[in-house]
């Protein structure tokens, strides 16, 4: 059965003793690896579309590179490495020191052990969740339905949760609602005003969460929670609109340098 010229399963013959395992049983596919264009030709459907798109986008890049000269190129951002990284390290190492300093001079408070039997007078999360806690105290504006005899449609907790969802939803959608090249607040006073409104709303909601600490009637406090952000937004809008005229000359000059009119 076994003769010396019959190839073994590993591709070699038995004519000499092997200690090295012999040649590889399969041919390495190096030479047969299809090239990019071959792969593109053989593929179909979504794969083919993908290859076609990649081809297009590479050609686009190449055209852009050959057509534009370096100096006139639009620089969309400055490089993360090394410029930004080095600058950030310098500034943040200072802040690292600040953290350690603050940690050593302001040790954290430690309260009583948990007692499921007695609710404390003041329940509070950490400061950064005050705004979220404030959203849970919006029960006065939870709409009541006359049809239901003044019953609320959703529970107060769910109402707070929906408010959270709405806020996160709006924040997530910002890049899809505000498009264009404008970068500075003066260029888009409306969006800057919206931002300021949001910031002040977060602060006033936080105040609402710790209402016990403010000797203000609750009704007044509740009105202020919504009036102050709107007022802040209006003031921001007015100020930026006024500043805009002065800025526009300078901005236009820079824009024309960046994108000369054709």
């Amino acid at each position: 059965m076994t003769d010396d010229t019959t190839p073994m399963t590993d591709g070699g013959t038995d004519d000499e003793a092997r200690t090295d395992g012999g040649p590889p049983a399969t041919v390495p596919p190096d030479d047969e690896t299809p090239t990019w264009s071959e792969r593109k030709e053989h593929s179909q459907g979504l794969a083919q579309l993908t290859y076609q798109y990649f081809e297009r986008s590479r050609r686009e890049d190449e055209d852009l590179r050959t057509e534009s000269t370096y100096v006139e190129r639009d620089v969309l951002g400055f490089p993360t490495w090394p410029h930004e990284t080095i600058r950030n390290l310098a500034i943040t190492s200072f802040f690292l020191g600040m953290i350690l300093l603050v940690a050593s001079i302001l040790p954290s408070h430690f309260g009583d052990p948990a007692n499921p039997g007695s609710t404390p007078a003041i329940i509070l999360p950490d400061w950064y969740l005050y705004w979220s806690f404030g959203l849970l105290k919006l029960s006065p504006i939870n709409p009541e339905l006359a049809v239901l005899g003044g019953n609320i449609i959703v529970s107060n907790e769910l109402y707070g949760l929906i408010a959270h969802g709405a806020i996160f939803g709006v924040i997530t959608l910002v890049p899809f609602l505000n498009k264009g090249n404008a970068r500075r607040p003066v260029e888009e006073p409306g969006w800057a005003a919206l931002g300021v409104t949001g910031v002040i709303l977060a602060i006033t909601l936080a105040v609402l969460a710790i209402q016990n600490f403010f000797p203000v009637p609750l009704e007044l406090l509740f009105s202020l929670v919504f009036m102050l952000p709107v007022a802040g937004g209006v003031i921001t809008y007015a100020v930026l609109k006024t500043m805009r005229e002065g800025y526009m000359y300078d901005l236009n000059r820079r824009y024309y340098m960046l994108r000369p009119p054709k």
Binding site: G111, D112, A114, N115, T119, I123, P125, F133
Partner: peptide, 11 residues
């Protein structure tokens, strides 16, 4: 598991 922890978790 202080008082505040417990009641924050309760909320």
């Amino acid at each position: 598991w202080k008082q505040l922890s417990f009641w924050a978790a309760q909320i």
